[in-house]
Design a protein around this nucleic acid. Structure first.
Length: 294
DNA sequence: GGTAGACCTGGACGC
DNA sequence: GCGTCCAGGTCTACC
């Protein structure tokens, strides 16, 4: 077992990152309620599969690997966890704005802002496609089935597997994805995505550091089959681009209830409601203290 | 550019 | 237990 300690920019709360959205419920994540952290099975560049247990400690997080790691593997894990938890981002200007908004009054105290990501952007794109046009339970089932059938196993426990690499999914027929992972009509989208990544046609990991303006970047995301308006906005959030809102049916319902007395609203009204938040509008929307309709 | 219909799964509901 | 209906985004064909 190898332990790594990673520092973070304060304020930081691992609990807030883990509960920022539902990703921790999707395999190969597993929530650890006793430590307010999580575990995650990952396949490293050299092929090694290890399970990481992540918990909070003063000044940062502790990462415990189930396998012994050499220096290069430790550095790879550090980079992955820093990305997954967005440890280096500065949220101070967002918190300055939230201090004058009662609906976001608790955000700074809870250190909310960081959004949990998967280790690779490929994994996040696939999972986002799995959230479209379905209920959350089905998304969880599809993600779990992908991992169970196509993920690389831990040497010590074949029941724990990493999220499948694009190389693996590119070799699987779309029909097999449909049948075994119950992906339905999404199967050819995931299959084509994996093939494009493997062929070099699409460098998804480079998206993490793209400098393109958000509107153009969004067009790139929407060029991926299966990624439309909602999915692209969700992926922009995951990449730390908060100047674009995730508008889905839930957003329309919430904004209608919160700002328009229950009257039907469209995308324009949702955008208008959060326009003043500028580069932080996605986060303001995400952590807003909504009035949940009864 | 806008719109209608198909795609697929799982939950809710009625019988 | 079985059948039916519906919600949930995106794509494609068509206008």
């Amino acid at each position: 077992m190898t332990h790594l300690k990673l520092s973070t920019r304060p304020p930081f709360s691992l609990h807030s990152v883990v509960h920022s959205h539902g990703w921790v419920q999707l395999a190969p994540f597993r929530e650890n309620e006793s430590s307010s952290g999580f575990s995650y099975v990952v396949q490293l560049d050299d092929g090694k599969v290890t399970e990481l247990a992540v918990s909070e400690e003063p000044g940062g997080v502790l990462v415990s690997s189930s396998e012994e790691l050499n220096q290069a593997e430790q550095e790879e894990i550090s980079l992955k966890i820093r990305w997954m938890l967005d440890l280096d981002r500065d949220f101070s200007s967002f918190y300055t704005l939230t201090r004058s908004e009662p609906k976001l009054a608790k955000t700074e105290g809870r250190a909310q802002g960081r959004v949990l990501r998967s280790a690779t952007f490929f994994e996040d794109v696939v999972k986002t496609i799995l959230t479209t046009n379905t209920v959350w339970g089905a998304t969880r089932n599809m993600s779990r089935a992908l991992v169970e059938h196509f993920g690389a196993p831990l040497l010590s426990d074949a029941n724990r597997r990493a999220f499948p690499l694009p190389q693996r999914l590119a070799l699987v027929e779309a029909d097999e994805l449909r049948l075994k992972a119950r992906l339905g009509y999404r199967a050819p989208y995931v299959h084509e995505l994996a093939q494009r990544v493997v062929s070099g046609d699409l460098d998804l990991e480079a998206f993490k550091s793209s400098q393109l303006p958000t509107p153009e970047f969004r067009k790139q995301l929407m060029a991926i089959k299966g990624v439309g308006k909602y999915a692209s906005a969700n992926l922009l959030m995951l990449l730390g681009r908060y100047d674009f809102l995730t508008i889905d049916s839930w957003a329309l319902k919430m904004v209608s209830q919160e700002f328009y007395a229950g009257q039907p609203v469209g995308e324009a009204e949702v955008q208008a409601a959060f326009e003043k938040w500028g580069e932080w509008k996605g986060l303001a929307y995400w952590f807003w203290d909504w009035k949940i309709p009864t």
